[in-house]
Design a protein around this nucleic acid. Sequence first.
DNA 1: TTTGCTAATGAAAACCATTTCCATTTATAA
DNA 2: TTATAAATGGAAATGGTTTTCATTAGCAAA
Lengths: 153, 153
Amino acid sequence: MPCNKFGWHGKFKECGYRVTVGRKEILDVLTKTTGHLSAEEIYLKVHEKYQSIGLTTVYRTLDVLASIGLLQKFDFGDGRARYEIIDATNEKGHHHHLVCTECKRIIDYKDFIDEEVELLRKTEKALSEKYKFEIKNHLIQFYGLCSECQEHR
Amino acid sequence: MPCNKFGWHGKFKECGYRVTVGRKEILDVLTKTTGHLSAEEIYLKVHEKYQSIGLTTVYRTLDVLASIGLLQKFDFGDGRARYEIIDATNEKGHHHHLVCTECKRIIDYKDFIDEEVELLRKTEKALSEKYKFEIKNHLIQFYGLCSECQEHR
DNA sequence: TTTGCTAATGAAAACCATTTCCATTTATAA
DNA sequence: TTATAAATGGAAATGGTTTTCATTAGCAAA
């Protein structure tokens, strides 16, 4: 999968995907919107500008983006997948999530990210060698109760 | 949630849940079977012994077990939830997963678990204080291609 | 620019894991 | 033993996601 030129446009072409109006707009929404959007939320935002783009296309495009490593798909336990652009130059940068199992609220955090990245690098290297597993991505999440939901107990 | 007596039996009672044949058997299957079982797989195993226990009960019991912290629910991207008993005394012990995004194979690993646990403890403490978030559990997963799926490229 | 090939698309239908409904059963404490 | 509410099973409903298929549109080549 030699899909690593700069810019998603090049990456698309390189991987044999065509650049279409829908894909451009979906990527635009994902880039400009912070947060953890569901497919439907993305569809609604895209729909504001292009009424012709359907939910099916949104799903298909999200699959494509995830498969070429531009997008990460999350399961926060609320019954629908949520998506985030993977962008090192993103102001939010590398971060992880605290997931409230009660109200499903998501809190982004980036504390100890440096230490974490170092441990991950080490782990990834060892696991790659030991299991001949080619690591593309990782996921770290904490589950628990947000301050508000603790009070309701 | 003062649900922390020893043994699941006490934990059940303490949390106001009744101990039933179905729940006993489901817990038995989960304890005796290694791996990452789906609800249906658990149902089929339970069904071998007790034909009267339905899939609905399996789902409900899994929810209960997860809510009292005996069970962890996973999403490995194959369209169904998978479950693992959380058991410190388990021979497998604390481990995480490598998920092949191609064939959905799961590899358990426990390399660098000590360093990881230390970092997690530190992170959990800091995040608890900073966000007043009560952490109950965490998830670490690596995504990529297993050795077999790398060859098929 | 035009053409031809094929990927991409939209809308509707299908899919299918999970949840809900509801009448019946069962665990448990009095 | 009995009363009560929790637990249950089976069927139906739910709803996010995927598939189908006829149509549209990228884009490379002429």
